[in-house]
């Protein structure tokens, strides 16, 4: 598979915290890549760099060979990067359809066109029954779906999902997993950050493990969980010996 998204030697410091240092990895077209690591490993910071919300201090991010890092979130979105947020950010004065239309205007000029596109992706995200509901009235899993629909409306090539399964019941999480698979089947490349390992590992094609701002290891999910370095990062030295 070809590399769609390339992260090269990326570093970012916030004050005294080196959030990311010298991060390099590839995302292949059509795969589901999991970004895993303990709290503070730099996962969300990396998402913020890829989505253009923050500019890296050093290094480069390329989508399809073209640099997108340092150009800001608008350029990243236009290039084909879309994201959801760890803490849901819905437009609470708007309905579901209106929320998604904001994203659809990225690719549509006229309101009717944006509306049509928005209705289609709301259907994809499984929110059609709530299409006219105010965003504030949605349940937490519905809000996650709203964010995904809004992101889909920008017609992304790469979708960044930041802890979309966190805080859901097991049944809701299973529905979420199915949605992610459906999206991949539609040709969208997915990068996801997740804490819930038992849900994430069967879902992803490959994993990039981060610890303390660095890439610890990269590989198949089954391989990385056996990696002593990974076990040490998660559970401490004692378990790595066992």
């Amino acid at each position: 598979m070809a590399e769609l998204l390339e992260v090269r030697e990326l570093s970012k410091r916030f004050g005294g915290v080196q959030a990311n240092s010298d991060i390099s990895f590839d995302v292949r077209a059509g795969e589901i890549l999991g970004l895993i690591g303990p709290n503070g490993a730099g996962k969300t910071s990396l998402f913020n760099a890829i989505s253009g919300e923050v500019a890296p201090d050093r290094g480069e991010i390329r989508l399809d060979g073209r640099r997108i890092s340092g150009l800001g979130p608008v350029a990243a979105s236009r290039a084909g990067i879309a994201r959801t947020f760890q803490v849901v950010r819905s437009f609470d004065s708007m309905t579901v359809l209106e929320n998604v239309m904001v994203g659809a205007f990225t690719r549509a000029g006229a309101a009717r066109d944006a509306m049509r596109r928005a209705e289609a992706v709301i259907d994809t995200a499984g929110l059609s029954a709530r299409i006219d509901a105010p965003a504030v009235s949605l349940t937490p899993p519905e809000k996650r779906r709203l964010e995904i629909a809004r992101a889909l409306a920008t017609e992304p090539r790469v979708l960044l999902l930041d802890e979309m399964l966190t805080g859901l019941t097991p049944a809701e999480a299973r529905n979420g997993v199915q949605l992610v698979r459906d999206l991949r089947d539609r040709g969208i490349t997915i990068v996801m950050v997740e804490h819930v390992m038992e849900v994430l590992l069967p879902l992803i094609d490959r994993a990039v493990v981060l610890n303390l701002g660095r890439v610890l290891t990269t590989g198949l999910p089954a391989e990385v969980v056996r990696d002593p370095e990974v076990i040490r990062a998660y559970l401490g030295d004692r378990y790595a010996q066992a």
Binding site: S77, R78, M94, G103, F105, T154
Partner: peptide
């Protein structure tokens, strides 16, 4: 739509190319 998105959540608006 852009204005209302800016009013409700600037970060989310930017991520949608507003």
């Amino acid at each position: 739509y852009s204005w209302r998105a800016v009013k409700d959540d600037v970060t989310a608006a930017r991520s949608l190319a507003v």
